[in-house]
Design a protein around this nucleic acid. Structure first.
Length: 643
RNA sequence: GCCGGAGUAGCUCAGUGGUAGAGCAGCUCACUCGUAAUGAGCAGGUCCGGGGUUCGAAUCCCCGCUCCGGCUCCA
């Protein structure tokens, strides 16, 4: 019986039964066949070597995300094959493709060393050179259990196969190449020779099935690409990320440091970092004040009783620093969140519907006892300052409040130079929620409507919400394409109840307000770290700690340099004169190394003509003989804050 | 917290049981220079901390602290 195939462009073709995906691709063109790594029928991925069935047929090529994922998955198999052939008695667990690469988890009774990695990579190269075909096989579970009798992790996967993704029913699929066989759903590239560019990157410990109570395996991470060029580009991106690492840039630019004397995850801010941070914080306070928020302040500690009422001691105790015992009756906790304090401000007087929405804002410094292994510079610290607000509103105000809030968030993030956003909408976890189900639905709909009104791309994270309410997380894309979660908007139906807060309605009845927790930067520290990496240390001029460095050519120009500095300072710019007795080249090098946005060189000719030499960090070349008045105007414009 | 790696001058690093080193940065002096490193000199160390082995420890062993890569968790 003939097979009828429809191509993505709508055209149709008929092939004899048993035709493989590869043969179909060849019929379209030899170049397509050479780039093909898998076939897709009605959206289902299939090995190229398998016979196709009727349906919508698509060739998956190697330079697509889907194609790379097939390559990487096959690379993981070759990795496992290499490890099993090199290490007697090695156990192998799982090895999926991941973003930018792949990994495989093993147990060889000891960790891998860098030398092991080299040996394994060589072995993998041999397997690739041998161009071994991947052969798919389907067997029933009992046969599979026999094949993997000496592989406890594979055995466990086979036994749980109903829930696993390997296959359905009693049949599991295997892939063989040479003597190596692995349990796998597929698809795979036709043969190992199609792996053109791969590299093992690092090893790390990883728990079996991600559970810290189960055995720890040794994971090998690698990357694989469709070409040597793509691999090189990826490795270059990794280097670029390393170059931008805020943990290197921060101390190098004298912004902040993490003295070990303080303890893990606790930073001190040096004058330059403190200045930038203050600029960010001032922007935040002023912008909030301009958008209907009222600024409040709350202490760093509170009695155990407060945290009992709020539920933190029940649900969040692990994340809190241990109690300070003042005497046997008074236990105080350092705050891990600001919300209970803001609730108390709400409750400090009787509230009318006329006051709602009531928006309380605070740059609130909190401390969380993060597990030592998760700390990561400013991005994950133990002490940090949230740009935290709690909005108390009526149930019917939720929708409009969320819409204006989302506009506000995007405005703020754009002000800091971010242009690409995505959101996650976390919905009710059916096993873990509290409150009124109708309120949940209403609020979730309101969040969705706000996302759509803002035109934001979002994905729904089904069941990911906290027990107390649904939320939106906003991610930005940075200068090198990395995604970072910044803002979060969370609805809370729990705290108003726990603290029993109410307002008086227009009908003179009492009603419970809804709370919205929201942070735009998330934390000032984390935001600062992300900004630093986004700009690779070269802040936009309004945030640069030193905006202008003046370089006198010789000592006799110091007086004129001072005059120019005065003019710039009077215009509100942050100026510094390099008075050291270095060469002009060296002084410029220093200023540029410090990523100063503007360098002004002044010498005899400038002093004579009342001009400066202007070199902008972003510009390729300097300009000479620019009149001082012009420089003041231009730099003032460049240094203009976003609002 | 767990697994692995690391910690020597402010920074980057050399030094595998026998007198602690280099480059950069810093300071002093000379040079006064037109767009990414002028030269000379000086100073700088609890070799992460504590304990042990040894005639002798930066080096070997044990415990702890901090950092890095992951797991897990998250702003």
């Amino acid at each position: 019986m003939a097979i009828e195939i429809e191509f993505p462009d709508g055209s149709k073709a008929t092939f004899p039964e048993g035709t493989t995906g590869l043969q179909v691709a060849e019929s379209i063109g030899p170049r397509l066949a050479a780039a093909a790594v898998a076939a897709k029928i009605d959206g289902r991925l299939l090995d190229l070597t398998r016979p196709v069935t009727s349906g919508v047929f698509e060739v998956v090529t190697e330079a697509t995300e889907e194609g790379r994922s097939v390559l990487r998955h096959s690379a993981a198999h070759v990795l496992a094959q290499a490890v099993l052939s090199l290490y007697e008695g090695a156990k192998f667990a799982i090895g999926p493709a991941i973003e930018n690469g792949f990994y495989y988890d093993f147990d060889i009774g000891r960790p891998f060393t860098p030398e092991d990695l080299e040996r394994i990579e060589e072995k993998m190269a041999e397997i690739v050179a041998a161009d071994q075909p991947f052969v798919r096989e389907e067997v029933d579970k009992s046969t599979a259990l026999e094949i993997f009798a000496d592989q406890p992790y594979k055995t466990e996967i086979i036994e749980s196969v109903d829930e696993s993704e390997v296959s359905g029913g009693d049949v599991v699929s295997l892939y063989r190449n040479n003597g190596f066989v692995d349990l796998c759903r597929g698809p795979h590239i036709p043969s190992t020779g199609r792996l053109k560019a791969f590299k093992l990157l690092r090893t790390a410990g990883a728990y079996w099935r991600g559970d810290e109570h189960r055995p720890q395996l040794q994971r090998i991470y690698g990357t694989a690409w469709e070409s040597k060029k793509a691999l090189e580009e990826y490795l270059h991106r990794l280097e670029e990320a390393e170059r931008r690492d805020h943990r290197k840039l921060g101390p190098a630019l004298d912004l902040f440091s993490f003295p070990s004397e303080l303890g893990s995850g606790l930073a001190v801010w040096h004058p330059k970092g403190g200045l930038v941070r203050t600029l960010i914080e001032n922007y935040s306070r002023e912008t909030h004040a301009d958008h209907g928020y009222q600024l409040v302040a709350t202490p760093h500690v509170a009695k155990a009783n407060l945290w009992e009422t709020s539920g933190h001691l029940d649900f969040y105790a692990d994340g809190m620093y241990p109690a300070m015992e003042l005497d046997e009756h008074d236990r105080y906790y350092v705050k891990p969140m600001n919300c209970p304090f803001h609730v108390l401000i709400f409750r400090s007087s009787s509230r009318s519907y006329r006051e709602l929405p009531l928006r309380l804002f605070e740059l609130g410094t909190v401390y969380r006892y993060e597990r030592s292994g998760v700390l990561h510079g400013l991005l994950r610290a133990r002490g940090f300052t949230q740009d935290d607000s709690h909005i108390f509103c009526t149930r019917s105000q939720i929708g409009t409040e969320l819409q204006s809030l989302l506009d506000f968030v995007l405005m703020v993030l754009r002000d800091f130079g971010f242009t690409e956003f995505e959101a996650d909408l976390s919905t009710k976890n059916p096993d873990k929620w509290m409150g009124d189900p109708e309120l949940w639905d209403e609020a979730t709909d309101a969040l969705r409507a706000a996302l759509e009104a803002a035109g934001l791309d979002y994905t729904v994270a089904e069941g990911e919400a906290a027990f107390y309410g649904p939320k939106i997380d906003i991610h930005i894309k940075d200068a090198i394409g990395r995604r970072w979660q910044l803002s979060t908007i969370q609805l809370d139906f729990s705290l108003p109840e726990r603290f029993d807060i109410e307002y008086t309605t227009s009908e003179n009845t009492r009603a419970r307000p809804v709370m919205i927790h929201r942070a735009l930067f998330g934390s000032v520290e984390r935001f600062f770290g992300i900004l630093l990496e986004h700009y690779a240390g070269a802040f936009p001029m309004w945030l640069a700690p030193v905006q202008v460095e003046i370089v006198p050519v010789a000592d006799r120009h110091l007086g004129y340099a001072g005059d120019v500095a005065d003019r710039l300072q009077a215009a509100g710019l942050r100026v510094q004169i390099d008075e050291t007795s270095e060469t002009v080249g060296e002084k410029i090098r220093r200023a540029l190394t410090a990523k100063t946005p503007a360098v002004l060189v002044v010498g005899d000719r400038d002093q004579e003509a009342k001009t400066v030499g202007l070199r902008l960090y972003e510009a390729e070349r300097e300009e000479r003989g620019v009149p001082v008045g012009d420089v003041v105007d231009r730099l003032t414009r460049l240094a203009q804050p976003p609002r």
